[in-house]
Design a binder for these strands. Sequence first.
DNA 1: AGCGTCACCCGGACGC
DNA 2: TGCGTCCGGGTGACGC
Length: 274
Amino acid sequence: MPELPEVETIARELREGSEKRGSSVLGRTIVGALIRWPRHLARLTPQAFRRRILGQRIQGVRRRGKFLLCDLTRGTLLVHLGMSGDLRVSLPGEAADPHDHTRFLFEDGSELRFNDTRKFGRVYLVASPEEVIGRLGPEPLAPRFTAEKLGAMLAARRRQLKPLLLDQSFLAGVGNIYADEALHRARLHPLRRSDTLSLREVSRLYRGIRDALRRGVRLNGASIDWVYRGGGMQAEFRVYDREGQPCPRCGALIQKMLVGQRGTHFCPQCQRLK
DNA sequence: AGCGTCACCCGGACGC
DNA sequence: TGCGTCCGGGTGACGC
């Protein structure tokens, strides 16, 4: 279930290195690519992909929304982790996992491996990252993203809050978990129409989104991955996956409903629909 | 523009 | 125990 916090964590580890993941990938040159699941590659055949990535050097690692970007000598490699995806740096000679579907080989025998059990992830190799991330909404954690800006964006739409928060062209990086957690923090009902919020409510939503995401980043995400991350956020869910359990704020029992085909968790007491 | 629906996947949970 | 079925995550394509 990688959302913004997880991608941020992985980007940081690939950039700076870590004990668990091995060293940084910065400055390394890709000398080969093993592709075991061609559909992982968006728009390119494995042959074309391999030809274009060979000899390229990784000059930077960034995150934008739920995409992880590797700036190459020419062009950009973008990875979307889907829900079960993970990127790991292997040691020379280290055996590959059955779910390592795409592997990038470095000169020294180590590899950058895209592990994706459920095969929802995608890999893009493009001349300009805008081809992939061009339509994403603003970064909710960026300093320039203000409550005023959010208020204007909400007022310009007439959608239910929950589906709107999940819309990556509205806001980048928020997925199902953090949408529910943000709305609970803001005490707003998931079905509330976006253009009916008061200034005070906009301000609560702004803080709710930012607080939930920041907390996730600090705790290394919400993924249930006991080998690599064991993201601490899962232990702090206030509503997500807590149907029938007490709301930490008021004690009422958390309810679950379907909104746009997505499981949606909320407190019927704190998050009233007027 | 917005909404609903479906397909893509598979590990794990559930029911019988 | 073994089998079948359903679920959930994010996105993109589709039709209305």
